[in-house]
Structure formats: C-alpha cells, structure tokens
Simulated scan of single mutants.
Amino acid sequence: MANWNDPQSRQGFGASPSLDGRADGRASYDMGLRRHMLSIYNYMASGVLLSGIVAMLFANSGMAMQMIASPVRWLVMLAPLGFVFAISGGANRFQESTLKMLYWGFCVVMGLSLSTIFLVFTASSIATTFFATAAAFAGLSLYGYTTKKDLSGFGTFLIMGLVGILVAMLINLFVGSTVLQLAISVLGVLIFAGLTAYDTQMLKNQYYHLRGTEFVGKAVILGALSLYLDFINMFQFLLSFLGQRN
C-alpha cells in the first residue's frame, strides 16, 4: 500500500484541483495525470511479470526445492521486506535511477520468494488465481480512479485490519488452525481489495501536488511498489484457499 511521505502539502482526497477555470489547463492536467498513472501501471505490471518469470524459472530449475531445505530460505523470505524499507525510507535521499534499480531488485527477490508456490499448488490453479486476481485488481483500481467518493476515511480501518491479520498469522503459526487460516485468507483478500481502490485514489490525488516537480519520477516508482504489493498480497491470499495442492 502507498505509505510514503508526500514532500508537498496535500489537498483532501476526492477534491477537484483548482486550475483557474481554464479549459486548456484542465485538459493539460488530465493528460499529464493519465500519463503519470499509466507509467505507474506499466512499472507495476512489468514488475509482476518479472517476478512471475523468475518464480517459474527458479522453481523449474529445482533450486526452489533446494532453497527450502537450506537456511538461505530465510534470507530469500526477508529480502523483499528489506527492499521495501529501503525504497520507502530512501525516497527523498536516493536518485530516481537508484529507486528504479531497487524496485527491479525487489521484483527479482520477490520472484525467488514466490517460487515455492509452484511446489505447493498446481500450475493450472496458480494461473487461474492469477487471472482472477488481475481481473479483480483492474476493476478495483478503475473504481478507485473514477469514483467521486472520498476513500480516505477507509485508510485507518484498512491499516488496522492489516495489523490484525499479521497478528493472527503469527498466532496461527503456533496454533495451526485451518479455520483460522481460512478466515485470515478471506479477510486478507478483502483488505487488499480495499487497499487497491484506496491506493489508486491516493496516487491520483497526489499527482496534483507533484506535477512539475523532480519528485514526480520517484512517485511513479513508489506508486508502482504500492500497487504491486496490493496485487501480490491479494493473489497470495486468494491462492491459499482457491489453489489446488499438488
């Protein structure tokens, strides 16, 4: 989800930007916004594709199976989190090129981490769940982009729900309840579905303050990372109860 700091002052979500009532200014703004959001979606989709390719190649090579049986698995599992912290925390310090490099590095290590799903679930169920997630993501993101409703009020609720899921997942590591796991999966899908719409609207509204600044290029990478995380988490939670096991 998008949680990076806006270097400019923000206007309320859902508010219409003031462009001095000029039709040419409105058209120019809309064109710039479309280019900005398209860049975010392109980076996000390319990142998901890269992760998927890496995951399949790593699993088919047999290295994923070897990784599970070695301590390296912990490094691979935690590496994506380190990249997320580096990108989010270094947004104001790093150059745009550095953020891009970190983003692609994150997508690669995320692919290594995701490779284990090919050892657990059938390829057909993974593909089916992926396309179902893609369709849901597209619809939710479109809703967040086009709706006039202010979604900012859902942010705190969604974050609280996300924290609750993390706590429940930690508890279930010791309990091992299948019922609790199913509940976590269902709630996870709902929360990241909400975050998809919420983050899309936030990214759209942030462009008003970022356009014309040097930060706009960095915002593309940060926005792509936010939507990537929404997509991947929704996919994993869906797969946990829709996927057919080997």
Rank of each mutant, 00 (worst) to 15 (best):
T156L: 13
S226L: 06
A27F: 02
L242Q: 11
Q206I: 08
F174K: 12
I184N: 08
I159P: 10
F121P: 05
M31H: 13
D30M: 07
D230A: 04
G111L: 01
L190D: 00
D150N: 11
G194L: 06
M65T: 07
L170H: 05
L180N: 05
L142H: 09
R10H: 06
M77D: 11
S226C: 06
A55Y: 00
I68R: 15
Y103P: 02
N205A: 07
I40P: 01
K100V: 13
F130D: 03
R93S: 14
F13E: 15
H36N: 08
S16D: 03
R35Y: 01
L49G: 03
V163C: 11
G32T: 04
L187W: 05
F241C: 11
R73S: 12
S16Y: 03
R93G: 05
L222G: 13
S226H: 08
T178E: 12
I53C: 04
Y145M: 07
L182N: 13
A132L: 15
L238D: 15
N3L: 15
Q95R: 14
T196Y: 04
Q206W: 13
N60E: 07
G21H: 05
C107Q: 04
I117N: 00
A86E: 01
L166T: 09
K204L: 00
M37C: 00
V109H: 03
G188H: 06
Y143I: 08
S185D: 08
L187F: 08
T213V: 09
I68G: 10
Q206L: 14
Y145G: 02
V163N: 08
Q66F: 12
S70F: 05
M160I: 15
A183D: 12
A79S: 10
G153T: 14
S88H: 12
R10E: 08
A197T: 03
M110G: 01
Q236D: 08
G52D: 03
L162Q: 09
L222K: 12
Q206M: 14
L239C: 12
L162E: 07
